[in-house]
Design a protein around this nucleic acid. Structure first.
Lengths: 184, 184
DNA sequence: TATTTTATCGACTATGTGTCTATTAAGCAA
DNA sequence: TTGCTTAATAGACACATAGTCGATAAAATA
């Protein structure tokens, strides 16, 4: 954030316009794979060469967008996780509420490998925090952290793509009733 | 199979060569998205125009490959599912063994939307069969079929992509110990 | 104001798609 | 075997896209 050396306002403006163009295009066709540098710069009303002054390729731009999404996700969910007196299901529900709020963005970006990885790491982190907080032994007899996270990722992926008519409350209930131990 | 009207042997040969070219290319770069009609026909040593005599586009070809993969998966796992005297975990293990055998193909094609959908439907079907077989009420108090299938899909996705050093036995054990009710 | 940085324009090479026509070759059926 | 049918090839076409380059104009800043 403030660590970065101050950038040329023209560069900042251009980058914002390119990102806005990406969201504008994605809101239409809902498909990351159909993006092209031409479409993005055309939508942003910028020259195509300008794109390459700021990003290596489309993936570079998408990576930075994903980074920003998860910076926000972390800053919004961390205070929730600090509240140790919350019920088992309230943490999960708080997270699912956030996912629901950004379900359209999530549904598009979940196809992007880096977004998927970030979400996976995020889930692992949250599960790990919850476990150590409740003093659950992480070495013996415990379901592997990664398998639990992969399972949750699968459910979230399904939810935002094909099952978004279910409420976050319902999903939270199903999840907690499915596992032997509460994941979040 | 034998229902189809007999096809021109030249067409059969061409289609087989194109499919082989796809597998050949995928064994090198492991990425469906990097395929092109030019690369495929060049690898198959066929004219590019010939491709369009048999397939609409790359997705059409991939769809037919995926179809064949699941035809084989079904024919190999169905006899296993008919054996009603098997232990809870043996069904799951038999399926995971099949996935392990074809893990390289699976890891590549799991990125393909149609493959993912087919696998999801397959999992739903198997869970449903197991449940009705064991007379589990599907309406009351039971975890939604789709959520369970989505969860398993997430685990399988993780396993074949990032956790294939774990044995199918270990994965089966983790899965059965994670859920309150055995999924398969 | 003078220097640096950014943005634009046009051009170029390269790869890819999908279609089309004409021609050659292989399969099949009377 | 001959003749019809279908498949495969070759080359061309218009079009979209990627990534780079040099020259020029415009904005930011020291």
């Amino acid at each position: 954030m403030s660590i970065h050396k101050k950038q040329d306002p023209r560069a900042l403006r251009t980058k914002k316009m390119l990102k806005n163009a990406v969201f504008s295009l994605l809101s239409e066709n809902q498909d990351v794979a159909q993006l092209s540098v031409q479409k993005i710069t055309s939508r942003a009303e910028l020259n195509r060469a300008t794109f390459y002054l700021h990003y290596e390729d489309i993936n570079d731009l998408l990576s930075q967008i994903v980074q920003e999404i998860f910076d926000e996700l972390s800053s919004k969910t961390e205070p929730l996780l600090q509240m140790k007196n919350l019920d088992k299901q309230e943490h999960l529900l708080g997270f699912l509420d956030y996912v629901y709020e950004y379900r359209k963005i999530f549904a598009v970006f979940i196809e992007h490998a880096e977004f998927k990885n970030s979400l996976f790491e995020f889930l692992k982190n949250v599960i790990h925090m919850r476990r150590s907080e409740r003093n659950i032994a992480t070495t013996e007899n415990t379901v592997a952290l990664e398998i639990m996270a992969a399972s949750l990722l699968g459910i979230i992926n399904w939810w935002i793509k094909d099952g978004i008519h279910y409420s976050s409350e319902y999903i939270a209930k199903q999840i907690t009733s499915m596992y032997k131990k509460k994941p979040l």
